[in-house]
Nucleic acid binder design. Structure first.
Lengths: 348, 348
DNA sequence: CTGTTAGCGCTTTCAT
DNA sequence: ATGAAAGCGCTAACAG
């Protein structure tokens, strides 16, 4: 029962030497062939191609890595208590990695940012990975900057939705939304903020406050009705509104994301406030469901592919010791749907 | 400018020999220590622990893999044109892998099932991974059963939502939903089916038809108003209903998932039909937004953690040549919310 | 343009 | 309970 299985390696894979023998060359020449060495006699190449095919030979990546000291692997690291992750981000990143000759693996790490930093160090120092891309909230105590073994770490300046954080401008759609709504007559804005350990949540909150301040002179009466702390969940949006004191007055809500917005819409309804009749609301993410809900949600469309691409380009550049090209791609775009409209007539 | 970076290995990592020297033992003994060999003198152990700590030594996984022939890596493979993937599934799988001493990597592969099968073979045969877990729709032409190099492949009998497919019973909530709704007076059921290359979509469709048939005798007049082919998207649900001929008569809809359900709700509304006043509808997935939408969606709650766990347990068992324990966990649970209710009074 | 010689860092016999 | 020798499959150097 507990007899250890023999673990018989059924069909040992062929090695360079076997290929060499079959092609009538030295194993070294095979190696050259495998790496696509430019200067080789066409005849030799042909014989080698034949031998490789016939034997079904594949390079042993482990052996190659041992010798070269490079694993050819880059890691995207996800925090685990995130319910869903947009695969377009990952797919785009993987594609970029692939184009540069790397294999991208994803590590899903449960626990806090400490655990992730730890795992990253482990991956790097054990030689499994050459670089780590931190997705999600930032590791608290910074990032292990272990440069040993040629390993690099791209500091996690990409956020949950992979919002770039370097440029605070990335939360600019919040400013845009406020300006637009102010133009429609709205004056009192509420912000349902996301979890502040996430850089994107912080950015949105900051832009919210700053914009209200900045636009004040242009729109007399423009004020913040408050910033309600919360999470990324629909519950949070619902509770945030439901637990608001009765005298809080507002006609526009900037929600941390679409889920929060959806929760808020329901809570508003239960308070007898209709959207967009009494209150306008804007989310973030362009979740598919929000396009068909009633009301459909005004939101910020995020270019997930671009996020993944940009992030991975930076990591690849870093690992190679090059300088990352600063692609100024426009990643976020505000779209207006049913959940936002003109401010209600004055006087309640 | 274009000067190739020297790629100086800044701080070459210490090896077993350095540790051995410092601890005054042979490199061999270090190896034993690393693998936790039981029979060792406590004093030696202590000296080794000290040396390892002091030098900041970490095992070189690449070298170890080369020698042992086992990479210690298992791969979860995701198809790429899937907008979002529930991380709980991945997290649970990763945890199980970890508990068994494996590292789980995720590979996001763009393209069709052919590309994924190809990539799997590559991973296995190159020795990077010891086993692959196919998530998402099934590779068309079966799976590469390469047993070389001790590699195994868990055939992808897990679906998009990781619905186990072996037991068709897994779509049983559909049967349950129909029975419940029939009890509430519904007689004409419409099915908005998911993409049929996904096993779970096929299963739901099959159970739908089979249940209507089976329950016919108990509920006179019970019939299918049709099965509308579609995808997993909200668009699909919307179009499916919007393009229905005017004379199609039904009071209950079984949707492929929540997105489809949400799209359908809107299309119904535009046809002048209210949910659940005129039509009841049930989705699948328990998407967070559906809990707060108006109407909130009746749906099937899926235990994502259980799915990930079960899947990985099977893979680990397979790789080790053991037999997988058939955990009969209850994974799906129907919940009733606002979108479903009694059938409207007869006679339209 | 191709072959020979070493050796990456570790673990696995086999001694002692 | 520990040490010595050998080699996993590959590529980097240096010859030829």
């Amino acid at each position: 029962m507990a007899e250890a299985m023999p673990r018989t390696r059924v069909g040992k894979r062929p090695t360079v030497r076997q290929v060499a023998e079959r092609a009538g060359v030295s194993h070294q020449t095979v190696s050259r062939f495998l790496r696509g060495d430019p200067g080789m006699k066409p005849a030799t190449i042909e014989r080698l191609r034949e031998a490789v095919d016939a034997l079904g030979y594949r390079v042993d990546q482990t052996a190659r890595s041992l010798r070269t000291g490079r694993s050819g692997v880059l890691t995207a690291m996800l925090p685990s208590p995130v319910t869903a992750f947009p695969t377009p981000v990952l797919a785009a990143a993987a594609e970029v990695a692939h184009d540069h000759g790397y294999f991208m693996e994803v590590a899903v790490v449960a626990g806090g940012s400490r655990e992730r930093a730890e795992r990253a160090a482990e991956l790097l120092e054990s030689g499994r990975s050459e670089g780590v891309l931190f997705l999600g909230d930032l590791p608290d105590g910074g990032v292990p900057s272990s440069r040993d073994r040629g390993a690099f770490v791209l500091f996690g300046d990409f956020d949950d939705q992979l919002r770039g954080v370097g440029q605070l401008a990335d939360a600019s759609p919040v400013a845009e939304a406020i300006a637009h709504l102010a133009g429609l007559g709205h004056r009192r804005f509420l912000h349902l903020a996301g979890p502040q350990q996430w850089a994107s949540a912080r950015a949105r909150r900051a832009v919210f406050l700053e914009t209200i301040e900045r636009l004040g002179p242009d729109y007399p009466g423009l004020t913040s009705a408050g910033v309600v702390p919360g999470t990324w969940s629909a519950d949070s949006g619902y509770d945030g509104v439901a637990q608001l004191p009765a005298d809080v007055d507002f006609t526009a809500v900037i929600a941390a994301n679409d889920l929060v917005a959806m929760g808020a819409v329901r809570a508003l309804g239960e308070r007898g406030l209709s959207v967009p009749g009494d209150v306008s609301i804007v989310g973030w993410d362009d979740q598919e469901m929000g396009r068909y809900s009633t009301p459909s949600l005004s939101t910020v469309v995020v270019d997930r592919e671009a996020q993944g691409r940009v992030a991975m380009q930076r990591l690849v550049a870093l690992v190679r010791g090059e300088k990352a090209a600063d692609s100024g791609a426009q990643i976020n775009r505000l779209v207006w749907r049913e959940s936002a409209g003109a401010a209600p007539a004055r006087g309640r």
